[in-house]
Protein backbone atom coordinates (compact mmCIF):
# COMPACT_ATOMS: atom_id res chain seq x y z
CA UNK A 1 0.00 0.00 0.00
CA UNK A 2 2.74 2.41 1.00
CA UNK A 3 4.73 2.15 -2.26
CA UNK A 4 1.59 3.07 -4.18
CA UNK A 5 1.11 6.22 -2.09
CA UNK A 6 4.75 7.20 -2.54
CA UNK A 7 4.47 6.60 -6.28
CA UNK A 8 1.37 8.76 -6.54
CA UNK A 9 2.96 11.53 -4.45
CA UNK A 10 6.11 11.61 -6.55
CA UNK A 11 4.07 11.54 -9.76
CA UNK A 12 2.20 14.61 -8.54
CA UNK A 13 5.40 16.38 -7.51
CA UNK A 14 7.26 15.64 -10.73
CA UNK A 15 4.30 16.61 -12.90
CA UNK A 16 3.74 19.92 -11.10
CA UNK A 17 7.49 20.58 -10.93
CA UNK A 18 7.85 20.01 -14.66
CA UNK A 19 4.81 22.22 -15.28
CA UNK A 20 6.30 25.05 -13.22
CA UNK A 21 9.62 24.68 -15.03
CA UNK A 22 7.89 25.02 -18.40
CA UNK A 23 5.80 27.95 -17.11
CA UNK A 24 8.94 29.74 -15.97
CA UNK A 25 10.57 29.23 -19.37
CA UNK A 26 7.43 30.36 -21.21
CA UNK A 27 7.36 33.41 -18.97
CA UNK A 28 10.91 34.23 -20.00
CA UNK A 29 9.71 34.13 -23.60
CA UNK A 30 6.50 36.10 -23.11
CA UNK A 31 7.39 38.89 -20.72
CA UNK A 32 8.06 42.20 -22.42
CA UNK A 33 11.23 43.39 -20.72
CA UNK A 34 14.23 42.26 -18.73
CA UNK A 35 12.88 43.17 -15.30
CA UNK A 36 9.75 41.07 -15.77
CA UNK A 37 11.81 38.14 -17.06
CA UNK A 38 13.73 38.07 -13.79
CA UNK A 39 10.53 37.08 -12.02
CA UNK A 40 9.78 34.34 -14.54
CA UNK A 41 13.22 32.85 -13.93
CA UNK A 42 12.54 32.82 -10.24
CA UNK A 43 9.44 30.66 -10.76
CA UNK A 44 11.40 27.79 -12.26
CA UNK A 45 14.24 28.36 -9.80
CA UNK A 46 12.06 27.96 -6.72
CA UNK A 47 8.98 25.86 -7.41
CA UNK A 48 10.42 23.81 -10.26
CA UNK A 49 13.61 22.89 -8.43
CA UNK A 50 11.93 22.14 -5.09
CA UNK A 51 9.19 19.94 -6.55
CA UNK A 52 11.41 18.01 -8.97
CA UNK A 53 14.06 17.32 -6.30
CA UNK A 54 11.39 16.28 -3.78
CA UNK A 55 9.82 13.93 -6.31
CA UNK A 56 13.18 12.33 -7.09
CA UNK A 57 13.91 12.00 -3.34
CA UNK A 58 10.67 10.09 -2.84
CA UNK A 59 11.61 7.71 -5.64
CA UNK A 60 15.14 7.17 -4.32
CA UNK A 61 14.02 6.22 -0.82
CA UNK A 62 16.19 6.53 2.31
CA UNK A 63 19.62 6.11 0.71
CA UNK A 64 22.74 8.16 0.05
CA UNK A 65 21.13 9.24 -3.22
CA UNK A 66 18.53 11.19 -1.27
CA UNK A 67 21.28 12.94 0.70
CA UNK A 68 23.01 13.95 -2.53
CA UNK A 69 19.73 15.16 -4.02
CA UNK A 70 19.05 17.23 -0.90
CA UNK A 71 22.54 18.78 -1.10
CA UNK A 72 21.97 19.65 -4.77
CA UNK A 73 18.53 21.04 -3.95
CA UNK A 74 19.79 23.20 -1.10
CA UNK A 75 22.64 24.51 -3.23
CA UNK A 76 20.37 25.38 -6.15
CA UNK A 77 17.92 26.96 -3.71
CA UNK A 78 20.52 29.33 -2.28
CA UNK A 79 22.51 30.08 -5.43
CA UNK A 80 19.41 30.58 -7.59
CA UNK A 81 18.37 33.53 -5.47
CA UNK A 82 21.91 34.85 -5.25
CA UNK A 83 22.57 34.79 -8.98
CA UNK A 84 19.17 36.33 -9.74
CA UNK A 85 20.05 39.17 -7.38
CA UNK A 86 23.51 39.49 -8.92
CA UNK A 87 22.03 39.71 -12.42
CA UNK A 88 19.52 42.37 -11.34
CA UNK A 89 22.06 44.47 -9.52
CA UNK A 90 24.60 44.28 -12.37
CA UNK A 91 21.89 45.33 -14.81
CA UNK A 92 20.88 48.25 -12.61
CA UNK A 93 24.45 49.43 -12.20
CA UNK A 94 25.13 49.29 -15.93
CA UNK A 95 22.18 51.55 -16.68
CA UNK A 96 19.26 49.29 -17.59
CA UNK A 97 16.48 51.36 -16.06
CA UNK A 98 13.53 49.48 -14.59
CA UNK A 99 9.99 50.58 -15.48
CA UNK A 100 8.36 52.40 -12.57
CA UNK A 101 4.67 53.00 -12.03
CA UNK A 102 3.66 56.54 -12.80
CA UNK A 103 1.79 58.02 -9.89
CA UNK A 104 -1.99 57.50 -10.25
CA UNK A 105 -1.98 57.34 -14.03
CA UNK A 106 -0.11 54.06 -14.35
CA UNK A 107 -2.66 51.28 -14.10
CA UNK A 108 -0.92 48.78 -16.32
CA UNK A 109 2.56 49.11 -17.70
CA UNK A 110 2.87 45.73 -19.38
CA UNK A 111 3.15 47.46 -22.74
CA UNK A 112 6.28 49.21 -21.57
CA UNK A 113 9.04 47.77 -23.70
CA UNK A 114 11.59 50.40 -22.90
CA UNK A 115 14.96 48.73 -22.92
CA UNK A 116 18.21 50.50 -23.23
CA UNK A 117 21.18 48.33 -23.98
CA UNK A 118 23.81 48.20 -21.31
CA UNK A 119 26.85 50.36 -21.52
Amino acid sequence: MLPVIIDILSWIMILTGGAFTIIGAVGQLRFPNFWARLHAASVSDSAGVILLIAGMCLQAGPTLITVKLLVIGLFLFVTGATSTHATASAALVSGLTPPVLKQKSGEDNSADKSEKPGS
Binding site: F34, R37, T87, A90, A91, L96, G118
Partner: peptide, 8 residues
Protein backbone atom coordinates in the same frame (compact mmCIF):
# COMPACT_ATOMS: atom_id res chain seq x y z
CA UNK B 1 18.01 42.01 -26.65
CA UNK B 2 20.39 42.79 -23.81
CA UNK B 3 23.35 40.87 -22.51
CA UNK B 4 21.62 40.49 -19.12
CA UNK B 5 18.71 38.65 -20.72
CA UNK B 6 21.22 36.19 -22.04
CA UNK B 7 22.99 35.82 -18.71
CA UNK B 8 19.64 35.22 -17.01
Amino acid sequence: PTVYDRVL
